[in-house]
């Protein structure tokens, strides 16, 4: 055999466990769940029996059963408010951590801690004991003011954020780190150059920092959506598991519920893609980073040799051409 063929087969061999697993534990169950959605599923001692009912399950989820429609607004609220706020907060905290501060490690460790300990049962216990909303805040003047004087829709959104501020922060740990390591790859020389040109902190933030973070925005949005959609703070998740083992609803009902839910998540991801991921222009910083990467890859430059000075020169030469 030629070396090329051997190499191809070896590659396949490395990926083989995943292919086998995908067939058995993803594709097959996936197909089965599609089938369940169109059937009534009954458990028998020897296995399961299915009766074809067409779209009945979907109809009962959407029109007959009140629970899904009751829980939908909570989910939509999470997707429309929680996700953007998580992004905004994680950018702000990443920028704060990126400043020259003492005890950066301690703060970073604190911000990341919830990622380690967050779990369904812990969150549930916290919620029961009213530990996730800063209950003291409700007596503040600003809270009362928003509640009384702002139009209903706006105040509901703002108060939702107030009430869920702990959840909001607890779901930002990974995003903060991703933004932070994005920020740390910005060449200090760019900020120095902006200083020389007399840019204010505000301008530097909008013209340098935000464009640097733009590529990570959609990545983080997607992560946040999937994270929140699959976490136990989501009412629909609990409802699916409940419905599975209920006599009146059953597997068929739960399956069609799952498909509707999946469709919803895909739509949300698409909306965020249209908002954040599309039309990403290649900024100067990006181009510079790409050039640097290409050069490293081709072996022209050894990473250790790249100092900020030589890089700046490279970039200047590059943009002038």
């Amino acid at each position: 055999m030629k070396r090329n063929t051997v190499s191809k087969l070896t590659g396949l061999l490395f990926v083989l466990p995943w292919i086998v697993g995908f067939l058995f534990f993803t594709l097959y169950p996936f197909m089965e769940t599609v089938k369940y959605a169109f059937n009534t599923v009954r458990f028998l001692p020897v296995g399961i029996a299915m009766d074809y009912v067409g779209l009945d399950n979907f109809v009962s989820v959407l029109f007959k059963d009140p629970d899904f429609l009751l829980q939908l607004p909570v989910f939509l609220m999470q997707m429309a408010c929680l996700v953007p706020m998580v992004l905004v907060f994680s950018i702000m905290l990443a920028v704060l951590l990126n400043a020259k501060i003492k005890m950066r490690r301690v703060f970073r460790a604190i911000f990341f801690l919830p990622v380690i300990i967050i779990s369904g049962s812990v969150l549930e216990n916290l919620q029961i004991n009213d530990a996730v909303s800063l209950s003291g805040m409700r007596t503040f003047f600003i809270y009362v003011f928003i509640q009384e004087y702002l139009p209903g829709f706006l105040s509901r959104v703002i108060l939702y954020i107030f009430d869920n501020v702990v959840i909001l922060l607890w779901f930002s740990g990974v995003q903060i780190l991703i933004f932070l390591s994005g920020l740390q790859k910005v060449d200090r020389a760019i900020y120095d150059a902006a200083d020389v040109d007399g840019a204010s902190g505000w301008q530097k933030f909008w013209k340098i920092t935000i464009p640097t973070l733009k590529p990570f925005l959609f990545l983080n949005a997607m992560y946040t959506i999937v994270d929140i959609a699959n976490s136990s703070i989501n009412p629909i998740i609990g409802f699916i598991r409940q419905a599975m083992f209920q006599l009146l609803r059953g597997f068929g009902f739960a399956a069609s519920l799952t498909w509707l839910y999946f469709g919803l998540i895909v739509v949300v991801v698409l909306i965020y893609y249209l908002l954040l991921g599309r039309g990403e222009k290649e900024t100067k910083i990006n181009r510079k980073r790409r050039r640097k990467k290409d050069k490293v890859r081709r072996g022209f430059l050894r990473p250790a040799l790249i100092s900020s000075g030589s890089l700046a020169k490279n970039a200047k030469g590059g943009t002038a051409v």
Partner: peptide
Amino acid sequence: ILPPQTTFLSKYV
């Protein structure tokens, strides 16, 4: 992106 719930039911079976 696929929520674990989509395959969860039939994996259970």
